[in-house]
Design a protein around this nucleic acid. Structure first.
Length: 486
RNA sequence: AUCCCUAUCGUCUAGCGGUUAGGACUCCUGACUUUCUAUCAGGAUACCGGGGUUCGAAUCCCCGUAGGGAUACCA
């Protein structure tokens, strides 16, 4: 007990956890990035550590302010708040330059004067000879006299040629690369701007990142980065390379798959709780548990339990989770998320029942908030036409008598409550000697305009007594007109 | 071409040398029912292939196969 408490304590002072999410602002925050961000956030939260947001915008051609905003929006919608940053790499150029100088001085980097043309040619010959394309080190051993720094040049990192780089990846396990596979990568371009593999190392080092959680497309960059860390005499962080997310069809995620930007999920009517729960379970698990509150995620999450294999995104399961949360979350919380969609659908809440009373009755019949907003129009506004099929089937001359009879009984009610409404309907069916189907459906179509709705008792109650009576009148009128036409 | 990674129901996954291979989504059947749902109860479906190691392999090793990633003055 004491031993445990002590080690826990030591762990805290010895290495307080710092994770980072480091997207490049070339587009919206996509679902794969969101999951990576969630894992980073969870790991930091679990260990009461720091979560750094860093914008990797060194590629000025492709980075945009809109994309930065989209990423910020996505993160904040999901509630993945950072404790540091956002840092922008473009604001740290001086620092990168300084470190590059250091490497140059140490002899761990060198200027390279090879032209792009020569490099392209080199690559082509190597490909033709079925070799792995890589820089041949032409400028690696130039003498100081041979280096004319007034000429255009890049700076390359002098990668070790012998031995290998290995690390224990938190998700993939032991990985080893032979240095012979690596070449001397460019750390500064001709215009002096730093490149990715270099800035990442400097930043992860400066920001004291303890766990790098990122997409597994970075596995191949890791040995290069570790070598730079070594040259800088710095300790590399722990790496956790999470596999990518595939589309519904098992293919690489792309625009074809529809909702790939995180904000699109909000627009499509998903609750952030559902998206988070879905994402955490996609590629990570804790036994058989499917439902995780944010608190449970933080408590139970462990980067070592992340799955090694890529996983396909399954909208049906997301839908199920979304409905689950609509059914189980406090009504107030659901309402909060729902409001945006109601405004979108131009539903005037002043002209109908309290939206809170609709949430429990609709939560178990729709899967998204969008669908929700789409289904409740008749509580707030009169409709000017019926669903064609439903009307054809149920608003027929035979329905006239049941409709007027039930209207009479409903009008006579002193108490407009589900029980009373239900008994009015029941007694109508009984009095006329017909089944429920003969009265229920015409009534449903009359008051909702369509063939689907919650139970009639609550539906009628929520629509309101007066409105129900008016709509039955309208339905009777509709039937008469129809009779006259045929 | 080379290097790296991966492989359990259709999908997400549990499993970490001995299990009737478990759960969830989806699907099917039944119950409930005035519609659509929801709910409850059943059911179907999986260890990529081949070799080893072992008394015993989904699990460890090797070789294939398939998929993915990387080999940029992108990140």
């Amino acid at each position: 007990m004491i031993k445990y408490a002590l080690s826990k304590f030591q762990e805290l002072i010895l290495m307080s956890v710092v994770t980072r999410f480091a997207p490049s602002p070339t587009g919206y925050l996509h679902i794969g990035g969101a999951r990576t961000a969630l894992y980073c956030w969870l790991h930091a939260k679990k260990h009461q550590g720091e979560f750094v947001l860093r914008i990797e915008d060194t590629d000025r051609e492709r980075s945009t302010d809109e994309a930065v905003q989209a990423i910020l929006d996505g993160m904040s919608w999901l509630g993945l708040d950072h404790t540091q940053g956002p840092y922008y790499q473009t604001k740290r150029f001086d620092r990168y330059k300084e470190v590059a100088e250091q490497l140059l001085e140490q002899g761990d980097a060198y200027p390279c004067f090879c032209s792009k043309e020569r490099l392209d040619e080199l690559r082509e010959t190597q490909m033709a000879n079925k070799e792995k394309p890589r820089y041949d080190g032409k400028c690696r051993n130039l003498t100081p006299e041979e280096r004319d720094l007034s000429q255009p040049h890049v700076i390359r990192f002098k990668n070790p040629t012998e031995g290998s780089v290995k690390w224990a990846d938190a998700v993939k396990g032991n990985i080893e690369f032979s240095n012979g596979e690596l070449d001397d990568l460019i750390i500064a371009r001709t215009d002096g701007t730093p490149t990715y593999n270099f800035t990442v190392v400097v930043d992860d080092w400066d920001m004291k990142i303890t766990q790098v959680v990122r997409g597994d497309d970075h596995v191949n960059n890791t040995p290069r980065q570790i070598n730079i860390f070594k040259a800088l005499n710095a300790k590399p962080p722990e790496y956790a390379h999470v596999p990518m997310i595939l589309g519904d069809d098992g293919k690489k995620l792309s625009k074809r798959h529809g909702a790939v930007g995180v904000m699109q999920y909000r627009d499509d009517g998903y609750l952030r709780e559902a998206v988070l729960n879905y994402l955490v379970r996609l590629g990570w698990s804790h036994g058989d548990q499917e439902i995780f509150s944010i608190e449970e995620m933080i408590e139970l999450f462990d980067i070592h339990d992340i799955n090694k294999a890529a996983s396909a995104f399954n909208t049906e399961k997301l839908n199920w989770l979304n409905q689950h949360y609509m059914k189980t979350m406090p009504v107030e919380k659901v309402k909060e998320a729902l409001m945006w969609h109601l405004e979108n659908h131009q539903i005037d809440l002043t002209n109908g029942p309290a939206i809170e009373s609709l949430i429990p009755v609709f939560a178990d019949r729709v899967q998204t908030l969008k669908e929700f907003a789409n289904s409740i129009g008749y509580f707030y506004a009169d409709f000017d036409s019926y669903d064609e099929k439903a009307a054809k089937k149920h608003l027929r001359p035979v329905a006239k008598e049941p409709l007027s009879e039930v209207q009479n009984r409903l009008n006579g009610l002193t108490e407009w409550q589900p029980e009373a409404i239900q008994s009015a309907i029941d007694s109508t069916a009984e009095a006329l000697g017909v089944g429920m189907g003969k009265i229920g459906m015409p009534l449903r179509v009359a008051v909702t305009g369509g063939g689907q709705s919650p139970n009639l008792d609550v539906t009628l109650q929520l629509i309101g007594k007066e409105r129900v009576s008016q709509r039955i009148d309208a339905a009777l009128e509709f039937i008469k007109n129809r009779e006259a036409q045929s």
